[in-house]
């Protein structure tokens, strides 16, 4: 049976005792807490600011438009940003799956959940692919003129931090290293500051786009007869 226990919470009472905890774990928990609080703050802003009231008479199916916004509209067959840029799109998808997988593994690591060797191999191979995708996207930003002109330091830092986080996750699967915690902490602290916060705003943006197109009966798109 797997013994589940949050790292650092080792005393019998389960009480939080940061003085008995390794410094890197304290740093990680602190970063995680700050990150979560900041994300809650950003999310609460979206709610607090609210959506603009629409007085026009709706003509579409709003519910279907919202569902479409998160599903069909995201399909690579529907977006030029995907089907005209398939290598970048594929790398981006792998990279995002790798990122979410790394976050999931981070939670498992915090809870001391061990992985069977075979799963470790599978995870490492996928995360390595994801790491390469991240590197590819980074190199593209460095060398493609138009992308370079569009980029600011935050774009590079965000890409580097996430890619490094994935690399550290692979390493951690085989070798428990303090650098994993440091990298993860920096990423968690940085996430709410720069463009990585699109993690939260992305969903709201797609919701608002669905409101616009849904009320007007643009989404879901009609099949042209």
């Amino acid at each position: 049976m797997v013994h589940v226990e949050l790292q650092g919470f080792l005393n019998p009472t389960g009480a939080f005792n940061c003085t008995a905890m390794a410094w890197y774990l304290v740093l990680t928990y602190f970063s995680l807490l700050l990150c979560l609080l900041s994300c809650i703050y950003h999310f609460s802003r979206i709610i607090r600011f609210g959506k603009p009231e629409d007085f026009s008479k709706p003509s579409g199916d709003l519910k279907a438009a919202i569902i479409y916004s998160y599903t069909g509209a995201m399909s690579p067959t529907k977006k030029e940003s995907a089907y005209l840029h398939l290598p970048t799109y594929t790398a981006g998808i792998i990279y995002h799956i790798g990122t979410f997988l790394s976050i999931f593994l981070f939670i498992l690591i915090l809870f001391n959940i061990p992985f069977p060797e075979i799963i470790k191999w599978g995870l490492s191979i996928f995360l390595f692919l994801s790491f390469l995708s991240g590197m590819g996207i980074l190199l593209k930003r460095f060398f493609k003129k138009e992308l370079k002109e569009l980029s600011n330091p935050d774009d590079y830092i965000s890409n580097i931090l996430v890619t490094l986080f994935q690399l550290m996750t692979i390493i951690f699967l085989y070798n428990n290293t303090v650098f994993y915690y440091i990298t993860t902490s920096i990423l968690l602290l940085y996430l709410p500051l720069g463009k990585l916060k699109h993690t939260i705003y992305f969903f709201a943006a797609r919701y608002h786009l669905a409101l616009f197109f849904g009320l007007r009966n643009v989404w879901p798109p009609k099949k042209i007869k």
């Binding site: 709610i47 607090r48 600011f49 959506k51 603009p52 774009d155 463009k195 943006a205 608002h208």
Partner: peptide, 13 residues
């Protein structure tokens, strides 16, 4: 408003 801040914070360049 919610719409503006959502779109203004979402572009990933």
């Amino acid at each position: 408003n919610g719409k503006f801040i959502s779109h203004a914070n979402s572009c990933v360049h």
